[in-house]
Amino acid sequence: MAPTILFDFDGTLALGDGPITAFARAIAERTGDSEFAMRAEAALAAFATGETDARDGYDAVTRIAREAGVDADVIGASYDDSRALLGSSEAAVDSPEGLPAFLETLGTHARLVLATNAPGDGITALLQSWGVAEAFDAVHFTVGKPAGLVPLIRDALATGPVLAVGDIVENDLAPAAELGADTALVGATFARSTATATMRGRSLADLYDQIIAWAAAASRLPDASQTSTPAPSAS
């Protein structure tokens, strides 16, 4: 068997609100609303404590922008502005502690795939700076989750078990679960989400041992195409 693990990027491999606060600043600059960034900070705090049902920090900021009547084109352009800054001091992110060693070990048991809705701007450079760019067998940007994740999961399931890891149930996990894959929920909603998940933890680092154990067990499963009983020959 050849198991596959699909990782989300923002909120899963990339930690911190740096890009989201950059998104809020860009909206403030494009609209001339000097108080927007402050309201966005409050919205992020409310999301972190479970006072809102936003899917993630980007969703929390987008909601208050829409409530303020900000045009969708302005929101989209502001998002692009923030992604161009990814990894800089103006949109800083961190990786989970011990990520290189974890992925190196995991890669001996499974195929590793990065699948994100974000554009590639800055992501490849970040992966290189973290020392994990070569750890992934495939990298997919601007996937268009949730629907865009479905063909990736189907292709992976054709070769073995699949584990989808992410911080947004609707985008990262639900498409996988519907197709019979296992799921790992990380991030701010890990404890309060009522969604079913195979495993869950505050951070990806909290699940290192469980994910490695899953991959090791999945890689030892017999290949049905090679172990099926041959049909009896005609006598």
Rank of each mutant, 00 (worst) to 15 (best):
M1A: 13
L6I: 15
F7S: 12
L15Y: 10
D17R: 05
D17V: 04
I20S: 02
T21V: 04
F23A: 00
F23N: 01
R25A: 05
R25C: 04
A26Q: 04
I27Y: 00
I27Q: 05
E29S: 02
R30K: 11
R30E: 01
T31G: 00
M38T: 10
M38I: 06
R39T: 02
R39H: 07
R39Q: 02
E41Q: 06
A42D: 04
A42L: 03
A43N: 03
A46W: 01
F47D: 05
T49N: 00
G50S: 02
R55Y: 06
D56Q: 13
A60K: 03
V61H: 04
R63A: 03
R66H: 03
A68N: 07
G69A: 12
D71F: 07
A72Y: 09
D73M: 05
D73Y: 03
I75M: 02
I75F: 07
G76I: 13
D81L: 08
G87H: 06
E90C: 08
D94C: 03
S95F: 03
G98T: 14
L99D: 00
F102M: 09
L103M: 06
L103D: 09
E104T: 11
E104S: 09
E104K: 02
G107F: 03
G107V: 07
G107E: 14
R111T: 15
R111A: 03
R111C: 11
A115V: 15
T116L: 15
P119Y: 02
P119H: 13
G120Q: 10
L126W: 06
Q128L: 11
W130Y: 03
W130F: 05
E134G: 07
A135D: 08
A135S: 10
A135M: 12
A135Y: 04
D137W: 13
V139L: 04
V143M: 13
V143S: 15
V143I: 15
G144Y: 15
A147T: 09
A147Y: 14
G148Q: 14
V150M: 05
P151G: 08
L152Y: 14
A156D: 11
A158R: 13
G160V: 04
P161G: 06
V162E: 07
L163H: 02
G166H: 09
G166V: 04
D167W: 03
N171Q: 07
L173H: 11
A176Q: 08
E178V: 14
L179E: 06
G180A: 12
A181V: 13
A181Y: 10
D182C: 10
D182E: 14
A184H: 14
V186R: 14
V186D: 15
G187Q: 03
F190Y: 15
R192H: 01
T194F: 09
A195N: 08
G201R: 00
S203V: 00
S203A: 07
I211W: 05
A213M: 06
W214R: 12
A215L: 10
A217F: 00
S219F: 11
S219H: 09
R220T: 04
D223R: 04
S225N: 09
Q226S: 08
T227R: 00
T229S: 03
T229E: 00
A234K: 14
